[in-house]
């Protein structure tokens, strides 16, 4: 059983937001009008934003440090603890998933998450004409729940799933080809698309995987480690 983990090298990241866009198309996150986006209702499972501590001056002078932030897939996730109906849960491989069919929209998980990785559908998702016919048809295999890239109804919470449907697809392909599933078969869209090759993905339990070796780096740190959530996304400091 793999323990999926991601390493993001901030030294390499150029904050191009390619990961955000790839995620958007992969996971069918709805497009939001500029007015709603200004209100803070845009949905970006992988958000790229300047760190607040840098201040306005740093941002103006292009000196700010940017952070790209997928779901941390915490080992000890605060969101799962507070969900009243079990709509969000951690699967066998440590991925924190969200079941749109069960979510009651109480938004307790969005409040509990210190990273702000959870998004609420404030209204029925919509796409511009042309885009709506080119949505990702992939679906999460298994219990038939509404998960991953499935179109969300309004009033539910959604979040990054490490492209869980890609995992299921990779297993199915390996099976069809009559071979063992290899960890390298499965890559989330943000990792695949990363311009600077700043993202690494793999099995944390495998001591020889890239992520395990990089997590031993002296530059390695976890976001808001003091919140006690034990994130499985590990960052590498700049410089």
């Amino acid at each position: 059983m793999a323990k999926w983990s991601m390493v993001i090298d901030l030294d390499k990241c150029v904050a191009c937001q390619g990961c955000s866009i790839a995620c958007r198309f992969e996971n069918n996150t709805p497009v939001v009008s500029p007015e709603e986006a200004a209100l803070g209702r845009s949905i970006l499972w992988n958000e790229v934003f300047p760190l607040r501590s840098e201040g306005e001056a740093a941002i103006a002078s292009a000196q700010a440090k940017f952070l790209t932030r997928p779901c941390m897939h915490c080992e000890d996730p605060p969101c799962i603890k507070v969900c009243p109906v079990g709509a969000t849960y951690k699967d066998d491989e440590g991925i924190v998933r969200q079941n749109y069919a069960r979510c009651i929209g109480c938004r307790f998980c969005t409040v509990a998450c210190p990273y702000g990785v959870r998004y609420f559908n404030w209204y029925e998702p919509s796409w511009e004409e042309g885009m709506d016919t080119h949505l990702n048809p992939d679906r999460v295999a298994g219990r038939g729940d509404l998960e991953g890239p499935a179109i969300r109804p309004k009033g539910v919470v959604e979040k990054c799933t490490f492209c869980i449907h890609r995992h299921h697809k990779a297993i199915a392909r390996a099976e069809a080809e009559g071979r063992e599933f290899r960890n390298s078969d499965y890559t989330p869209a943000c990792v695949q698309t990363c311009t600077a090759k700043a993202r690494f993905f793999g099995d944390f339990d495998d001591p020889n995987s890239t992520v395990s070796r990089l997590s031993q780096s002296r530059r390695a740190f976890r976001l808001l480690d003091e919140a006690g959530t034990s994130p499985k996304v590990i960052y590498l400091h700049e410089g």
Binding site: K81, V82, C83, P84, V85, G86, A87, R102, C103, I104, G105, C106, R107, F108, F120, N121, P153, K154, G155, V156, V157
Partner: peptide, 29 residues
């Protein structure tokens, strides 16, 4: 107020059918 605040009030019964006692919302209910 809680029902007004819910994104999916139609799934209110889910709190009882699928309720997780570990959640403070269930304690509240």
């Amino acid at each position: 107020q809680i029902i007004i605040d819910m994104g999916r009030p139609d799934r209110l019964l889910s709190v009882i059918l699928n309720g997780r006692l570990q959640s403070p919302i269930l304690w509240d209910v």
